[in-house]
């Protein structure tokens, strides 16, 4: 029940973020739309910014929990960008608020475990050391995060899903090829 209530509040919050700016959303709006009392809201969250932080934490956990069900590089990238693509307006509102850093952290921290796991799996049996694999993971995560943030900054007018599919097509297999080059150095 507690989880249901928390989920109801965070879902309502995301719904409201798709309608108006973060600084325009009040606890009153959430309470009225969600139907939980003010007391219940403050039992789970300190304020709107705490709610944002915990909502992003939940999304991160959801994204990471889907790793095992995903079997292609393209699907992994789309899984990472799932929330951003489906909630463009909400993401844009977070990006243009004082909580932009939370969004950046969310993107990086949800991408890193997914990308690390993929890279570790792909480089298994190659000459890559664990240290090299970690460096590659960091570079790829930063590339993904930067692409996403740039796309958000530019107003999300281009088709991000298509861009991710192209990235997957272009870079799929590139790691193995880079590994064989690294072997000779």
């Amino acid at each position: 029940m507690a989880l249901f209530t928390q989920k109801a509040i965070t879902d309502t919050f995301v719904g409201l973020l798709n309608e108006k700016r973060l600084d325009k959303i009040t606890v009153k709006d959430i309470v009225e739309k969600c139907g939980v009392s003010r007391k219940t809201f403050y039992y789970y969250f300190d304020d709107i910014y705490d709610l944002l932080e915990k909502s992003l934490e939940d999304l991160k956990r959801e994204s990471v929990s889907r790793i095992d069900d995903i079997d292609s590089f393209e699907a992994e990238l789309l899984n990472l960008a799932d929330f951003v693509i489906k909630n463009k307006k909400a993401v844009y509102h977070i990006y243009n608020s004082v909580s932009r850093e939370k969004l950046e952290d969310y993107l990086y921290e949800s991408a890193l475990p997914v990308i690390s796991k993929t890279i570790d799996a792909r480089l298994k049996g190659t000459t890559y050391s664990k240290e090299d694999a970690d460096i590659v993971s960091m570079v790829c995560t930063n590339a993904f995060t930067s692409c996403a943030l740039r796309w958000i900054k530019e107003g999300m007018t281009s088709d991000f899903e298509y861009i991710l599919k192209r990235i997957a097509a272009i870079f799929d297999g590139a790691l193995e090829s880079a590994a064989s080059k690294a072997k000779n150095q």
Partner: peptide, 27 residues
């Protein structure tokens, strides 16, 4: 004092975002 309860508690369903229109203009 609000006597009319929000509808969400009785008819709550997770926010459906599938019909979210493409964001083509800045807010």
């Amino acid at each position: 004092i609000v006597t009319k309860k929000g509808k969400a508690e009785e008819t709550y369903s997770p926010v459906d975002l599938s019909d979210f229109k493409d964001y083509t203009e800045r807010t």
